[in-house]
Simulated scan of single mutants.
Amino acid sequence: MTATMNPLDQQLARLLAEPGASVVVVAPHPDDETIASGGLLQRAQAAGAAVSVLLLTDGDNNPWPQRWLERRLRIGADARAAWGRRRRAEAIDALACLGLPASCLHAMGWPDLGLTARIADQLAASLVALRAALLPLRPTLIVAPILEDRHPDHSAARVLTELVLAHWPAPRPALWGFAVHGSATQAQAFMLSADERARKGRALEAHASQLALAGGRWRRRVAHGESYVPAAAPVGTGMRLELPWLPAMPQFGACALLVVCGEQAWQLPWREGAVSGPLHLQLHPQPALGFAQTPRAPVFVKLYSRRPGLWIFDHWGWRQGGQEPALTLSSDSASLA
């Protein structure tokens, strides 16, 4: 039977055969655990592995489905909190459809659409909390969003996961990535049986609040199965860092460069000569980020603005750089607008 498996199936079979196998899915919102990994969770449970879902937010900042279903325009704090409780309950019902007990859900209760701000303002405390939640689960495989996922909570979840794993006691768990919003390059297909697919479909229906306006989209997504990107070795030196785009003139003063290394975060205004702690930013002749000394850990960089917008998806994105005293900030986009 192993001979008919694709490489990802074989890798998972080996991971699940290890003594003390434990799979943890890091879900930024309720429904991500089902959409991204409902099949994998079933497979791990059937193999006898410990299975956990670490839910970072309750998905409470989800106004348009709430307005539609509750026939309200204004959403106050109490209504938003009630929506979050509804979505967490939906996640528990979905896990039951997958054959998993409510006890496998571990909720952090962090603010929906607020994970990037946590990195900017509360990085050390967030890493302490995330490490405290993950360590008792003793994961041998962690499944989390990829860095390129277009939802800002998803990409931020990946940054937080990577930062925690950078100081993980040996042996370090394997890390797989998934994309819910957007696509993953180099993703490998994970084959689901007909029964696994059917149970995953029933689990999706438990997330009724998310199907009211986007049911067709998510049902099609579930029908297509799952795919993952196994993480490569931790980043070392010699990497060129490219931003998705560089700010044009109208954004000057409205955005900053958010830089994360180890357990520290800095924000540099996007202007010539900006300085924050050991960092300095130059824009001419080519944007570059300089460090007072060579970083001791991989660096994550993101163009960041606190200015609210109607579009939640993130075309700015995070980039990961190596441990170099200077990183070139070129753009892989022909448009700087």
Rank of each mutant, 00 (worst) to 15 (best):
L268C: 09
V301F: 00
G236T: 13
I312Y: 02
A297R: 09
V301A: 10
A297H: 14
L289H: 11
Y304K: 05
L283H: 03
A256R: 15
P298F: 09
G236N: 07
A256F: 04
G277D: 01
A297D: 10
P287T: 02
W270T: 07
A248R: 09
A256W: 14
A297L: 09
H280M: 01
W266N: 02
F300A: 13
P298W: 02
L258F: 03
F291K: 06
G236D: 06
C255G: 12
P244H: 12
A232R: 15
Q264K: 12
Y304D: 08
Q264P: 01
R296Y: 02
A232I: 03
Q267E: 15
G253M: 12
R240C: 02
W266Y: 15
Q282N: 10
L257D: 05
T237M: 13
G253K: 13
L246I: 06
H284F: 09
R271I: 04
G236R: 13
A254D: 10
P278D: 01
M239V: 08
P287K: 10
Y304M: 05
A248I: 03
L303H: 02
G262R: 05
P250D: 01
P269G: 06
G309F: 01
L268E: 05
H284W: 09
L310N: 06
V235Y: 12
E263A: 15
V301C: 15
Q267I: 07
S305P: 08
E263T: 10
L241P: 00
H280C: 10
A288L: 04
T237I: 06
W311H: 14
G309Q: 11
R306E: 12
R240K: 08
P308T: 02
M249A: 14
P308I: 11
V260E: 02
P278C: 03
M239C: 08
A254T: 12
P247I: 04
W311N: 08
Q282V: 14
P295E: 09
W270N: 05
G277F: 07
P298Y: 04
L310V: 07
Q267H: 08
W245Q: 11
H284L: 15
A256E: 15
A274S: 13
T237R: 14
R307L: 13
L281Y: 00
V275L: 05
V275Q: 12
Q267N: 07
P285V: 03
V260Q: 04
H280Y: 00
L243T: 01
P285K: 00
G309N: 12
P285H: 00
Y304G: 04
S276T: 07
G262K: 05
L241M: 08
P269L: 03
P298C: 06
R296Q: 14
W266S: 02
Y304R: 07
M239K: 04
E263P: 05
C255Q: 13
A233D: 07
P285M: 01
V259G: 09
R296K: 13
P278H: 00
P247L: 11
R306Q: 11
G309R: 13
P234A: 13
P295R: 13
R240P: 01
P295Y: 13
V260T: 11
L246W: 05
R271G: 07
P308E: 05
A274N: 13
S305W: 01
P244L: 07
G290M: 00
G262L: 08
